[in-house]
Amino acid sequence: MHPAPSVIAFTTLSGLGFGLLAFLGLGLPPVTGWVAFVFFALAYALAVGGLLASVAHLANPKNAIKAFSQWRSSWLSREGIAAVAALLVMAVFAIALIFFDVRLRLLGLLGAALCLTTVFTTSMIYTQLKTVPRWNMWTTPPVFLLHCLGGGALLAGQPRLAAVLLALLGAMMIWAWSEGDSKGRAGSTMETATGLGRIGKVRLLEPPHSGENYLLKEMAYQVGRKHALKLRILTISLGIVLPVALMLLVPVTHFTAIVAILAHLIGVFAGRWLFFAEAEHVQALYYGR
């Protein structure tokens, strides 16, 4: 699948933002006043920045407002509603905390739950697609949620919790990679795609067009698979091992925290790029890819 920068930025940044918001809603860290303002500003910048980046990948954004209408059937619609609900509830919580020094605990809990719901709905957009077997796995929602919680804990200054969550995330990603590798295209082949398996082995003789098209650009992206192993090592070492080591083995200062967060962010970007780039779509079988 085509790794669109806007979608990678959206899923990673908003995941981190909603993770931090969830921890703030739970009272971790128990900040008030201007310190709380800084934390909430960072969380909103990440969450809203990510959401705005996702609008950049729409070809016809003037109809984006209609995306709130189909929550009965569409995970993308549910995501939009959950995101707005989470941001609004957490805004009330943040205003009360920052300006009135009042901690509305129940509202904070509700907001945290909505933040996690938002990330879960994001993950389901990918998980639901039977056409992309590497995404259509039970591991996709836990990977997205652990990304959000692990990164959120790191940003919220919870070293031990962050270390545990990131270790879980690393394990889950490795599991998802190996399961995805063995799954391939889940039984779909050029023979089932064309129905010509009844004759024999099928190969593409002539593609329907000599140039590129939307289908090939969007769903037959091939660059990423070549570097999959290197990117996986990069993801685990920078996104998981380095931050976990920094959180557990050295005294946590602002400096180590910033290094850990930046390393994690680079690792997560690499991992999310790979999440798209190495995912194969069954329709590419019609092009022999």
Binding site: L58, L76, E218, M219, Q283
Partner: peptide
């Protein structure tokens, strides 16, 4: 709105 999700879902 041109999000392209329907094209992703089509085998």
């Amino acid at each position: 709105m041109g999000c392209g999700l329907c094209a992703w879902s089509c085998p």
